[in-house]
Design a protein around this nucleic acid. Sequence first.
DNA 1: GCGATATGATTGACGCATCAATCAGAAGGG
DNA 2: CCCTTCTGATTGATGCGTCAATCATATCGC
Lengths: 155, 155
Amino acid sequence: MPPATRSRSRRLPTKQQLATWRAFIETTEQLRSALAARLQAESGLSPSDYAVLLALHDTDDHRIRSSVLATRIGWQRSRLSHHLGRMERRGLIDRQECSTDSRGAEIVLTPTGDAAFRRATVPHLRAIRELFVDALSPDQLEAVQDLTAALGGRA
Amino acid sequence: MPPATRSRSRRLPTKQQLATWRAFIETTEQLRSALAARLQAESGLSPSDYAVLLALHDTDDHRIRSSVLATRIGWQRSRLSHHLGRMERRGLIDRQECSTDSRGAEIVLTPTGDAAFRRATVPHLRAIRELFVDALSPDQLEAVQDLTAALGGRA
DNA sequence: GCGATATGATTGACGCATCAATCAGAAGGG
DNA sequence: CCCTTCTGATTGATGCGTCAATCATATCGC
């Protein structure tokens, strides 16, 4: 049975397609780590720290239930709990008992955490612009939207 | 000084651009982890295991110097050393002394490691086709090449 | 109310990545 | 030759992410 007529489910990617795939993941990984390195250097925060602080900063009172935070940033509760422990040790956030549910924990942004976030945000956005937005033409930026839409639904 | 005339280096991404960026990294992360989960389920290998085994399998004699391997897959020697330790414990590879340089280590693929690699490779390639190649039109695949070329040079 | 169950959150164990420190052996200069 | 320096590789400490187990409290059904 010649390759062209093999069943759809058994087809393998061509060398070309595989090369495109490889270039794709390598490039995205490179981008991600370059961004992370700049964020770290400029503010001492990891991307995870930043995600937590951003969510916390976006609340009205710099305070949020742990489970709500987990959902909002799309993390497992366990991961969040571990990470909050580390952030608490560094003084970036504080944990308080929840008034309405004594099982619950409320996470509050400390002044230290807020300062770190403020110090981080503009340089971070600038880095995104430099490494991503400025590297692409308007057409290419549209192509990114098109691609993420196409890739998004199936994983 | 109005935003439009601010110096180039201080400009920040627009909400649109930021949304595109977010969608981009989230989608790539999702893709990556979906692939990893399938690989793990089908063969018990992590993407890192696979990278090591692939490089080893591609040599003539299933044997390679540790430092050469590190360079070939783009890892720090330290990372490789730790990972090889874990792979050795699982019986996937073996470490032997190098004949020409007694500081050196030679990594050899064990039958177990070879079997795991063989078991993994076709399903893995198939997953790449399903989750990436098949999700995109030929034009979109070209767009990916275009994008990686544009993003690649600067990080 | 009370027992079963569901839920908010933490913990522990493990694999993984990075950094700095280390160690043994090779290479080069005197 | 010996000493210095360089290099291949490993180690230990620490942060991070996942999974399964745990714990305490809430909630539901009776």
